[in-house]
Computed example of a mutant assay.
Amino acid sequence: MLRLSTLALLACTTPLLAQEINVYSHRQPELIQPLVDAFTAETGIAVNVAFVDKGMAERLQAEGDRSPADLVLTVDIARLMQIVDADVTQPVQSDVLEANIPEALRDPADHWFGLTSRARIVYASKDRVAPGEVTTYEDLASEKWRGRICTRSGLHDYNVALLGAVIVHHGEEAATAWAEGLKANLARKPDGGDRDQVKAIAAGECDIALGNTYYMGQMLADPEQVPAAESVNIVFPTFENGGTHLNISGVAMTKSAPNKENALKFMEWLSSDAAQKIYAETNHEYPVKPGVERSALVAGWGDYTPDPTSLADIAAARAAAVKIMETVNFDG
């Protein structure tokens, strides 16, 4: 795997090899490697992945036509839209992608494509939360949850996207009141990641927490985290006028893509049955391609009805959501 600096050096000093692809990824390398290995084994095309946690759009703008990156992989619709809005991607017309990825999970202008989905759900204590007690996202702001909720930072992408969905459903004024109510119900200051919230429930610090579905799969695969994971149930809340909030991981092709043909092959392969099954079994995510089965573990959590709210609309509400989180001092 090449580091980011190595990829940048390649762009300036040597021609890129024909049978390779360079990827800038927001996703952790260990989540991508099984897919990279399988694709290379099948096609002989090498995939160089550089983990870029922050400033991806700005880096691509600075590199311009000299950028070595062919593709970007992200973990949030808002991050995808930020990169597209930075004018560093290009549209991709592909019958394969159109056939494999539902219309609601790809850009109408063909700049981004969803590869997996994940639900923003509630982890609920098996001992202290009764079945049916968790109902809607709106209800999380009610007084019955006072001092019972844990969550990561309100400014994290996952929570900003959820608040963006609240804005789309109810407007900014109601979303502000919801954020204030949710903050009032926190058992502790926002801290850590989603898995840390599960550990906090197990330790008795709170009764419920917001989290993504796939983190539970990761915890159950780690013997040290199994006891905490087994202390909670997964609950799929809904919006009062909709379904369960979901987000996506996705891919876009850069405007400068030096290995465009091979990059397209990788994009199409990521939407294939083989890749979608790897996503499902290895990362415990929901496949976007219809007909690909969820992992047995994920299937055991039950079915849910995805909220039909447009992902593009949620991404468009990001700035307002961030402003609300800052205004209510959610993390303070």
Rank of each mutant, 00 (worst) to 15 (best):
T74R: 06
V75G: 15
S117H: 11
W112T: 00
D65G: 04
I83N: 01
D85W: 05
L80E: 07
A104H: 06
D107K: 03
Q93D: 15
D95P: 08
L115T: 06
N100S: 15
E98W: 09
W112N: 00
A86S: 14
L80M: 14
A109N: 14
R79W: 03
V75W: 12
E103H: 12
A99L: 13
E98S: 15
P68L: 13
A99V: 12
V72S: 01
R79F: 04
A109M: 09
L97C: 09
S67I: 05
A57Q: 07
A86R: 01
D76H: 14
R66C: 14
V75Q: 12
S117G: 12
D85G: 08
L105K: 05
N100F: 10
E58N: 13
P102I: 09
V75E: 14
R106K: 10
D87P: 03
S67W: 05
T74P: 09
S117C: 11
V96C: 03
L80V: 07
V88P: 00
L115V: 10
A69P: 01
D107F: 01
V84S: 09
A69H: 01
P68T: 13
W112D: 00
A99P: 06
D76R: 11
R118N: 14
A109H: 08
V88G: 00
A104F: 05
L71N: 02
D70V: 07
N100V: 12
S67Q: 11
V96D: 04
P68E: 08
W112Q: 00
P108T: 04
N100A: 15
S117I: 13
S67Y: 04
R106Q: 04
T116R: 07
Q82E: 15
L73P: 01
V88N: 00
L115D: 01
L80H: 06
G114Y: 04
T74Q: 08
E63W: 06
L71R: 02
I101S: 04
A69N: 01
M81I: 13
I101F: 12
D65H: 11
L105I: 10
E98R: 13
Q82M: 10
A104Q: 11
S117D: 13
D85L: 07
T116N: 10
D65I: 04
T116L: 06
L73T: 03
I83R: 02
P91F: 05
T89R: 02
E63Q: 13
D85T: 08
L73K: 06
R118Q: 14
L105M: 12
V72A: 03
E103N: 09
L60V: 09
H111P: 01
V88C: 02
D95L: 11
Q82A: 12
G64L: 10
G114D: 05
Q93E: 14
A69S: 08
P102H: 10
D87I: 05
V96Y: 03
A104E: 12
D76V: 10
V84Y: 03
V72H: 00
M81G: 10
R59P: 02
R118G: 15
E103I: 11
P91V: 02
R79M: 10
V88M: 00
R118W: 15
E58A: 14
E103D: 13
V96E: 07
R118H: 15
D65R: 08
L71Y: 02
Q90P: 07
A109E: 12
T74D: 13
W112F: 05
A78N: 13
D110F: 08
P91I: 04
G114M: 06
L80Y: 02
L60Q: 06
